[in-house]
Each structure stands twice: as C-alpha cells, then as structure tokens.
Amino acid sequence: MRHLLYSILLIVAIAAAAFTIVGIPGHLSRKPPLEVFPDMDRQAKLRPAQPFDFFTNGLSSQLPPAGTVVRSSPVKTLNGEVYSYQDVPFNTGRVTGTTNFVALNPLPVGSALLQRGRGQFDIYCAPCHGGLGDGNGITKKLGVMPAVISLHDKRIIEMTDGEIFNTITHGKGLMGAYGPTVTAQDRWAIIAYTRALELSRLGSPDELSAEQRAALKK
C-alpha cells in the first residue's frame, strides 16, 4: 500500500508543479489565446480595420474612391424622397443651389422623430451640453471644458435649423464634427429634440389646460 501512497503523492506534486507553471485558470494574462488549428480559425479573408499591406495605406478598410456614391435607400422628407448624394436641404442644411441655411427641419416632426432625437441627443450631445441642453454636461461639471454653451441661449433659439445642422455636421469653433458618426436623419432628429428642449423653457403656464395648471400648483 505504501507504493500507492507514493504514487498519489507524486501525482499531487506534478499537478502542483503544473499549476505553478501554467497559472491559475481565468486570471488576467497578457498572452494572446491559444488557437489549436489556426488555419480554420484565421482564414484568408478580410475583417474591418485590420492591418493589410496590399493597400498602400496598410489598412483593410478603404475609403470609397472619389466620385462614387453610397448605395442607399431614399429617405422620405417633406419635399419627397431624397438620396444621400443629392444637393438638398436634408443633406446640406442649405437651400438647394445657394449657401443660405434652411429655416426648418426637412423631416416631418412627430413623436417617433422626437423619441429618436432624444436617444441620440443623450448619446452624442449630453456629455457636454447636458441632458437638458443647458450646457451643464459632465465635462463642464468637472471644469475641464468651460467653453460649452447652453442650447437655451437666445442666439441658438433664433438660429435656423439649417445652421445647427451645419454645426453638428462640420463642428464649429471648439466643438468637433459629428457628421462622420451621426447619420443625417439622426442629426435632424437631434435638432427636432433640441427645439423641444428649448420650448420646454420658453413655455408659459398660460399654454397649459386648466387641469395641468392645477396639477402644477400642487
């Protein structure tokens, strides 16, 4: 029986040695995971944003060549259906053929657009302008970005929708451009929601029904 005991001890010793060499399972490690059959795991196909030396800039994702347009389905606006390559207010914020900004949102404003705008505003604008649009986002509260303005400023309220569209798309002054990450449709939704936020502070109690006023007084 002594031999049995010895062999068990030997196995325990080997296991302990193995643990110390390969480590405790699931702990943090800098080493990339093992792939046993890499030829199936990594095939000769491209993924987005990977290094790839076939192209001169060394990237698998390329920008579309100049003069090409994105294949897309048209978007319904108040002036009919438009495509993303057309020179129309929906894409540029300007009156077609001029540099004048359009006054009003080219999309039909309804509760669906406002809901969408609210979601997108909370993602892309709230970190700086705050959830209420008053300019008190987290970056201002931390004091790291004092330049952020309130969207309830008289100047912004009087600004045309087209000019705000231009600001979001290309950025302005110290504010970066959101054209590359936010689709045109979502930018107009954000503008509709911004107008709703502004209205929420411009309204007077006279616009409410008698019951709503009574509820407010409580």
């Binding site: 193995a18 399972p25 699931g26 943090l28 490690s29 995971p33």
Partner: peptide, 20 residues
C-alpha cells in the same frame, strides 16, 4: 488528471477569459 487539465486549461473558459 489529463482530462481535468484539458477541460480546465484548453477550453475557451481559460484560454480566452482574462486575456488583457
């Protein structure tokens, strides 16, 4: 021991989890 070692060390629960 070999079976236990393989299930603990050679499955994605260990090979991937913790990769940083």
């Amino acid at each position: 021991a070999v079976a236990a070692g393989v299930t603990v060390y050679c499955t994605p629960k260990n090979t991937r989890v913790g990769y940083q």
